[in-house]
Amino acid sequence: MKSLKNPELFRSIDSKLKLVANMVRENQPKLNPTPVPNDERIDRLHQYMVAEEPYLDPSISIQDLSDKIDMPARELSVLINHKIGLHFFDYINSYRIKKATALLKDPDKKAFTVLEILYEVGFNSKSSFNTAFKKHTGTTPTQYRKNHS
């Protein structure tokens, strides 16, 4: 009903877009004995994430990242969800946690509080940082620091 009363909602939609299910099916490897080569899009994404560290921006969105790597947001979403096997924010948080673990182990950063580190790596709250950190490492940031110092 809403779409009938507000047709402008659909004006910018590309009618040639494929369904995600069809995109995934097309990208699935065919059954053959030869290994599927690495997806160059994943390599390009990973290289960008390591070199430019866009995950440090606490307000990063999939649209921001897709603009930076010149890939349609929908294609990037399918790539992260179906090829890498993570949701967008889990993917972003994996880079944030990797950076946080490096900072927590760094003797030069010993004076930094956990709160300072979580803001430095792109988190907005201590609870979301602790949850993501424990999900990725199996321990809390404070315990991690104690075990690796």
Rank of each mutant, 00 (worst) to 15 (best):
M1L: 15
M1D: 13
M1C: 14
E8D: 14
L9R: 13
L9Y: 14
L9E: 09
F10E: 14
F10G: 15
F10Y: 15
I13P: 08
S15L: 15
K16Y: 10
K16G: 12
L17E: 13
K18D: 15
V20M: 10
V20D: 08
A21E: 12
A21S: 15
A21F: 12
N22V: 13
N22Y: 10
M23Q: 15
V24W: 00
V24N: 00
V24F: 02
R25S: 11
R25T: 08
R25W: 10
E26M: 12
E26G: 12
E26C: 12
N27F: 02
P29A: 13
K30N: 08
K30E: 08
L31H: 11
N32Q: 15
P33L: 10
T34R: 05
T34Q: 06
P37W: 02
E40M: 15
R41P: 00
I42P: 03
D43Y: 14
Y48H: 13
M49R: 00
V50S: 12
A51R: 13
E52H: 15
E53A: 15
D57P: 01
D57S: 11
P58D: 02
P58S: 04
P58R: 00
S59A: 13
S61Q: 06
I62M: 02
I62Y: 00
I62D: 04
Q63F: 12
D64A: 04
D64G: 07
D67E: 13
K68T: 03
K68P: 04
I69F: 01
I69S: 03
D70T: 02
D70Y: 00
D70A: 09
D70G: 03
D70L: 04
M71S: 06
M71L: 12
A73T: 06
E75S: 08
E75V: 07
L76H: 00
S77M: 11
V78H: 01
V78K: 03
L79F: 01
I80Y: 00
I80N: 05
H82P: 00
H82Y: 08
H82R: 05
G85V: 04
F89I: 08
D90N: 09
D90P: 01
Y91V: 01
N93R: 11
N93I: 07
S94I: 03
Y95C: 05
R96G: 03
I97T: 01
K99R: 10
A100W: 01
T101F: 01
T101H: 03
K105A: 12
P107Y: 00
D108N: 15
D108F: 08
K109N: 04
K109A: 07
F112K: 06
F112E: 08
F112L: 10
T113L: 09
V114F: 06
V114S: 02
Y119G: 10
G122D: 02
F123N: 01
N124Y: 09
N124E: 10
S125Y: 04
K126L: 14
S128F: 15
F129V: 04
N130Y: 10
A132K: 00
A132C: 05
F133S: 03
G138D: 06
G138E: 02
T139I: 11
T139E: 10
T140R: 09
T140F: 09
T140H: 09
P141V: 10
P141L: 11
T142C: 03
R145F: 06
S149W: 01
